[in-house]
């Protein structure tokens, strides 16, 4: 029998939780594989879990790419690769090239991804009482202090989009918005917008990136696993991820509707506004990324984004 920890850093509303539950259920009781489930970050936040999987302390985790170990992982935050669910599934979905591209990087860190988990598109949300709706970028961003995650690509993106970017850890975003330390937050998925609805007045669907997470396993642990166990885990994971695409999209719509019902104003960018924002990202962020990961990978992504 094999017993292993599966951990992630998000709450029960999040797609990570439903994926974990469905994984454990499908794995069944008689597989000889026993999951020790640790949700909601009780073993550490997402960067810490990434690291713990590298060290093999947490053999399996659902988490994002911590680019402080390898800057190439910023690729998973790259802006405007896709802007609708259909394209997202083509680029990141089962059978796509992306998993292999990421695994080339992850293997250097003693990690292996058994799948890519779709989360949601990112939005910009505005704190209650600010009264601004920055849709024409970069002009409207001027003078707006926006929270970004503490990764370089996020700081650069929102600086390029005209905002005043302030990196704040996820655990302190709510207080920062409530106290008015920042006027806005970036990288907000629908579930997160809904969770912070009390302090928000507007959600702008900038869709500036499509969030995918890694289904990570420690490479040493994975390589030592009995072949049939690994095969069983892989096939169940594939099955769960296939189903999760529909679920992620449904969750996105559901929580956006719930946020709207709770009084958050939902705003779409017009085609012209979206094109202007995209142009900025393609001119600033993409060349920088090309320096990190090389022209081959970026070529594939340009095709995917329809800019070549």
């Amino acid at each position: 029998d094999e017993s292993f920890i599966l951990a992630h850093g998000m709450n029960t509303d999040h797609v990570f939780h439903s994926i974990s539950e469905s994984f454990m259920e499908k794995l069944g009781d008689d597989s000889g594989l026993e999951v020790d489930y640790h949700p909601a970050g009780d073993l550490g936040d997402w960067t810490s879990l990434f690291e713990q999987s590298m060290q093999g302390v947490v053999p399996m985790s659902l988490t994002w790419g911590a680019s402080d170990f390898d800057q190439r992982l910023d690729l998973s935050w790259l802006g405007y690769v896709v802007s609708n669910w259909e394209d997202a599934k083509k680029v990141y979905g089962p059978g796509s090239d992306m998993l292999g591209i990421y695994n080339d990087i992850l293997h250097d860190l003693d990690l292996h991804a058994i799948g890519l988990i779709p989360t949601d598109f990112g939005s910009v949300v505005i704190r209650k009482g600010v009264g601004k709706v920055p849709t024409t970028l970069p002009a409207d961003g001027s003078g707006i202090k926006i929270r970004v995650p503490g990764v370089a690509i996020a700081v650069d993106r929102f600086t390029n989009l005209g905002f005043s970017a302030v990196p704040i850890p996820l655990s302190e975003v709510y207080t920062a918005l409530q106290l008015g330390t920042v006027d806005a937050r970036s990288f907000s998925t629908a579930v997160e917008t809904y969770n912070m609805r009390d302090v928000l007045e507007t959600n702008i669907l900038t869709n500036d990136y499509f969030e995918t997470a890694f289904w990570l396993v420690s490479k040493d642990w994975w390589d030592d696993l009995a072949e049939e166990d690994a095969a069983k885990i892989q096939s169940v994971a594939d099955e769960v991820i296939e189903a999760s695409w529909e679920e992620a999209e449904a969750k996105s719509n559901e929580f956006l509707a719930k946020a709207e019902e709770a009084g958050v104003n939902i705003v779409n960018l017009s085609d012209a506004e979206m094109e202007a924002a995209k142009a900025i990202i393609y001119e600033t962020e993409w060349p920088e990324m090309e320096k990190l990961v090389g022209p081959e990978i970026m070529g594939k992504l340009r095709v995917a984004a329809g800019i070549e």
Partner: peptide, 16 residues
């Protein structure tokens, strides 16, 4: 471990 993996801080990119 942090030296071997070349871990750097996310903004300054200083060795962790």
């Amino acid at each position: 471990f942090e030296i071997e993996k070349g871990r750097v801080s996310s903004y300054m990119r200083w060795p962790k």
